[in-house]
Design a protein around this nucleic acid. Structure first.
Ligand SMILES: [Mn+2]
Ligand SMILES: [Mn+2]
Ligand SMILES: [Mn+2]
Ligand SMILES: [Mn+2]
Lengths: 218, 218
DNA sequence: ATTTATTTTTAGATTTGCCTAAATTTTATT
DNA sequence: AATAAAATTTAGGCAAATCTAAAAATAAAT
């Protein structure tokens, strides 16, 4: 009844690739996400379909079933609660926690997660601004968008990051951009898509389109 | 180079069965400890011997190598630090933490354990009174003995418990006996080995030999 | 509409950790 | 010392998760 670590990682990968919706996910995309061969993914998809965790049509891709979606939500909840613990209590930096949470998310004990949640004050978002699903695995999606499609001359607030890589997160640290930072688009450069932005109503800097795309604001 | 969860569990089992010494451990004892068939243990012993973690002589039993002993110490350190976290920070009772620590002890990150240790104030003993090995895996054995061989009419202090079962720990809770409790042997009953003891210089109760054997005092 | 390219699945192997049953070695008992 | 009992190892197999290479299905390009 309880899923293996491998199964949990696949379920979570499908969840992330389908962006919390019912979007169909391809075999190759999963293979890339979990870093395995496509053939290995096919094997696993058959197993997950047998367990009714996904809807799988050969050659057509997969989506999570209702059960699969809730399971994914619970794993994501654990991942994000542990990340919050690591940053809030153990003083890890936000670019250092992903690998460890990747392991901790598989620890099996509902009681543990309930107590951890309480210990942390039942946080609603993790250190990267991502929402934490409830104990049943339900996730309330946050209505936010990349800075690239946000309106000019308006002040936006950084809600989360669209990339968890430490190179990206460390760059944000250097630029003094974090969750909650106010950003006003001063000018958009047609040429390379870069943006002239005002940070926290203070200094004005230029950021690349690549960076702006991964700043999720509300 | 890094050991699997199964390998770690076997190394730890051998460590516990050899009571931190160089005592030789039998296949059946390990099989019983890790709850597997004896043949499975033999397979694993060959693998651990190849990796130079144990000294293995077929039919003669095994003991940990220097490397194996340090690896065991590191796993035990993690187990006991996590137990301390669960009790001190998440308010688990001391009879509820073993199963979860059994999982958490396999999380791989030296940085994590270093920070956890610091967060907990570098505790020297875990919730059961067992010493916590240092970061290198070295353990300073505590010189303590079962209450059954302690002197009469002297006051002893409970240092640790010789049994982690929740039935035993819950019984101690009922008897108001915990780590640090003062116990004076009032009388030893020849007939069944039970002891008349005075708890914290207050009430006098009778405890069975079975119970006294698992009260480790100093 | 064919041909080509890409994606996905199938086929056949490997490794790890486990099992049962049979053979072997060691230990205990007549 | 011979035999019986217990402990341990070997033999052969199985399930999970992975791989590479080949076949099949789908999508893209001419
Ligand atoms: Mn994971
Ligand atoms: Mn996160
Ligand atoms: Mn364990
Ligand atoms: Mn303990």
């Amino acid at each position: 009844m309880t899923a293996t670590v491998a199964e949990e990682n696949y379920i979570k990968a499908i969840f992330h690739l389908s962006k919390n919706e019912n979007k169909v996910v391809n075999t190759n995309a999963i293979a890339n996400e979990v870093q395995t061969a496509a053939a290995t993914v096919t094997d696993m998809l058959k197993k997950l379909a047998d367990k009714k965790l996904i809807k799988y049509e050969p050659y057509k891709g997969v989506s999570l079933s209702k059960n699969g979606l809730l399971m994914a939500g619970k794993i994501v909840r654990k991942h994000r609660l542990w990340e919050t613990f690591l940053v809030e209590k153990l003083n890890f930096k936000w670019d250092e926690v992903h690998e460890i949470a990747e392991q901790l998310e598989h620890i099996q004990s509902d009681d543990l997660i309930g107590r951890l949640d309480k210990f942390l004050g039942s946080p609603k978002i993790d250190p990267h601004g991502d929402p934490i699903p409830d104990a049943e695995g339900n996730l309330i999606p946050i209505t936010s968008k990349p800075l690239t499609i946000a309106s000019s001359h308006d002040v936006h607030t950084v809600a989360s990051v669209g990339d968890q890589s430490s190179s990206f997160l460390q760059m944000l640290d250097k630029l003094k951009i974090s969750i909650g930072t106010k950003i006003k688009i001063v000018e958009k450069h047609e040429f390379d898509g870069s943006l002239q932005v005002k940070i926290n109503n203070q200094n004005i800097i230029n950021i690349s389109e690549q960076l702006a795309k991964n700043l999720i604001v509300k």
